[in-house]
Computed example of a mutant assay.
Amino acid sequence: MSLKKATLLIVVILLIDQISKFYIKTQFALHHRIEVFEWFQILFVENDGMAWGTKLSDFITGISDRTAKLSLTIFRIVAVIGIGYWLVTSVRKKGPNILIVAIALIFAGALGNIIDSVFYGIIFDDSYSQVATFLPETGYDTLFHGKVVDMLHFPLWEGVLPNWIPFVGGDYFTFFEPVFNVADMAISSGIGMLIVFNRKAFHQEEEEDHKASVYIEKEYV
């Protein structure tokens, strides 16, 4: 796959991701819910941290939530630069299409959530008990402290767990509980492709390593 096609895939995912987030942010108040099907809901929540709402401050003592948020955003920016470099390098080396598509999906998803984290705090006001305004006089936070917009919820099963299950028996349980967005889907799909098609995705690199080892053996052994 060419870099041009990979870039087009990234742009399409980013557009879908940001358009869906813009629509939710300007049409829904926080925690507003629409049931599309019994097993699928549009539920507007905002994620201030990592996956499933966890924060760095939950794991590192002595660090404030705002410092943890800024650190996480900077880490994401550095990570997406590294992923972008990996993508360009893989294209130049004519890597397998499955590898390039997977990296492009991960890159697009990571960049989509970075846009929220960096800019949403200044281009929107808050969504508590109201629909947010785009480009207000004062945003709900400062640069690099925005919250990621999530809206896709798939409560495939809800009910009370049987009492015989250790530790959680008798508790009310929802599967699948997390709320996510298009960017999260892209990241998960890309990682899933790398796991499922691992041998195919990295077959060329394995061949190059094998050829290099054979060459070394012939020359120096």
Rank of each mutant, 00 (worst) to 15 (best):
K5P: 00
I10V: 15
V11E: 07
I13W: 06
S20Q: 03
K21N: 05
F22C: 03
F22N: 01
Y23M: 12
K25M: 15
F28W: 14
F28M: 15
H32V: 06
E35S: 13
V36N: 01
F37E: 09
E38H: 12
L43P: 00
L43S: 07
L43G: 00
F44V: 09
V45N: 05
V45F: 03
W52C: 02
L56E: 01
D58Q: 03
D58N: 13
I63C: 02
D65P: 01
R66A: 13
V78K: 01
A79F: 15
A79L: 15
G82E: 13
G84L: 13
L87T: 12
T89L: 08
T89Q: 10
S90E: 14
R92I: 07
K93D: 13
G95C: 05
L99S: 10
A102W: 11
A102N: 09
A102R: 06
A104N: 07
L105R: 04
L111N: 00
I115W: 10
D116L: 04
I122G: 06
F124T: 03
D125T: 09
D125A: 08
S129G: 00
S129W: 04
V131Y: 03
T133C: 10
L135A: 09
P136I: 08
P136E: 07
Y140K: 06
L143A: 01
V149F: 05
H153R: 05
F154G: 02
F154E: 02
P155G: 07
L156E: 08
W157G: 02
G159E: 06
N163M: 12
W164R: 01
V168I: 15
V168W: 13
D171V: 07
Y172M: 03
F173V: 10
E177H: 06
V179N: 02
F180H: 03
V182L: 04
D184G: 08
M185S: 15
A186Q: 04
A186G: 04
S188N: 07
S189M: 14
I191M: 11
M193R: 01
M193P: 03
V196H: 02
K200T: 14
A201K: 08
F202G: 08
H203N: 15
E207M: 13
D209A: 14
H210W: 11
A212C: 01
Y215R: 13
E217T: 09
E217D: 12
E219R: 09
E219K: 13
